[in-house]
Every structure is written in C-alpha cells, then in structure tokens.
Design a protein around this nucleic acid. Structure first.
Lengths: 110, 110
DNA sequence: TTAGAATGCCTACCCATTCTAGGCATGGCC
DNA sequence: GGCCATGCCTAGAATGGGTAGGCATTCTAA
C-alpha cells in the first residue's frame, strides 16, 4: 500500500502553516486544503496534527485568531499571521534552506 | 548563544548515517566526524542520538557491525551497509527529494 | 609525570511533534 | 431521512533526537 503523500518531517509543519497564512488569513480546515493544493497534493496535514499545531503557534504569538463567517456562511476560526509570525517564517525558511544545503553537500560528498 | 549547527529534523538521521556508510564501513565515532566534514560543519550529530540510531538501524538489517581495530590501533565497532541498507538509502533519499520538492512548490506558491 | 583532551562506546531520561482514532455540530444534496 | 463535506477539537501512542551523564583507553602538553 503506497501512500499518496509523504509524512512530514517533524519540525516542518509550523513553517508550512506560517507560509500558508502569509498568503492571507484562513481557518484550520482551509489551511489543510491549501497546503494540499499548494504542494500539488504531495503534502497532507492531518487534522490531529494541525489543530494542536495552531494552538502552539498561537501561544507563541505567531498567529492570532478570530471566529468569523466564511464565504459559504459557516462559522470558522480564522488565523492571521502576526508580525512576529512573519519573522518566524523567515527564520524557519532560513533554517530549512540551511538544512537542505547541508544535506545536499552530504549527498554530493565522496 | 547561537548554535553553530542546526538541529536535525526528526527522520533525517538514518539517511545521513546510511549515506555516510555508503562511502565505506566506519565506526560510530567516525560517522559523527564524517557527517560533520561532509556537511562542511553544518551538521553535528550527538553521540546520544547516534548510538541509539545505529542500534535501531542494525535491528532493521540495514547495517551489520563487527569489532575491529582502526588505523591507530584502537578497538572500535565498525558498521557496514548491507544490501537492504543500500536499498533503504535509496528509499530515504527519494522521499527526502520528494519532500524538498513539495516544500519548494509551497514556497513558490502565491 | 601527570592532568586533561581526544577517542571510543553506551544508557536513561527528557522533550517536542506528528499521527491515529476517535468525538461533535452544521449544512447541502439525493 | 441519510450521507457526505465542512468545520472544530481531544486523548493517547509512537517516534526519534537531545541532554547529560558514565566508563575505558591513548595521546599530548605542562
């Protein structure tokens, strides 16, 4: 049984959430869908991973949330990236790049 | 206090170990050094991460080990990549590539 | 010569994060 | 009415990397 999507590596989810929100405020369920489509269906985030992650991220001040109504008239909790969240996104992208670079070096080594 | 090296993402260590051993058998302490130098000092694996990882990896049949003597005459436990380990390395490199690709797509998305 | 650094292996415990597997409510559609 | 999609949430398991020790041997510098 081949999985359609790879498991995330631990530590990447925050970056993906912050990146998603950097394109505009969104509610949890929508974040999952947006990550799927932005990654061409390669990444799937489980609800059981997302909601605790959102909680953590909000505690750290990287997002703020408000209950609102979406375009179809349903209540949903919208998350907005804060200034500090935007900085955090840069930090996480930088260390992601750093790791990818390091692994690339390793892969090339002989 | 800035860290000289980033923490690894959970799930990358096995790949790094297997990759290192794909260049030739080596003992634990040497694996740590080789990972450091192959990554241009960007990656540091702690002993407390490495030895349990080697144990796991050996249990899974990806490496085999033998006590031997190194070039300086000291006893050390040398790990050798098995056939199955070589396949596993390919698998892990493929899913690493897949993840990097997916994240790259996400980063480019608007 | 002797202290300490480097080499070498190992373990117990901590900690963070993701996944599995549920639960619940509402709304749209057949 | 029944089912699926949308929407939020939680408890607990599993994973795996880090911290912080312990131990023995060899090399090196004061």
């Amino acid at each position: 049984m081949t999985k359609a999507t790879a498991d995330l590596l631990q530590g990447t989810l925050d970056m993906l959430i912050l990146k998603t929100l950097s394109l505009g405020a969104l509610h949890g369920y929508g974040i999952i869908q947006r990550i799927r489509q932005m990654s061409d269906e390669m990444l799937t985030v489980e609800q059981g991973s997302l909601y605790p992650a959102l909680y953590r991220i909000e505690q750290r001040g990287w997002v703020s949330s408000d209950w609102d109504t979406n375009e179809t008239g349903r209540r949903a909790k919208f998350y907005t990236l804060t200034k500090s969240g935007r900085r955090q996104l840069e930090v996480e992208e930088a260390s992601w790049d750093r790791l990818v670079l390091a692994v690339t070096k390793m892969r090339r080594a002989t």
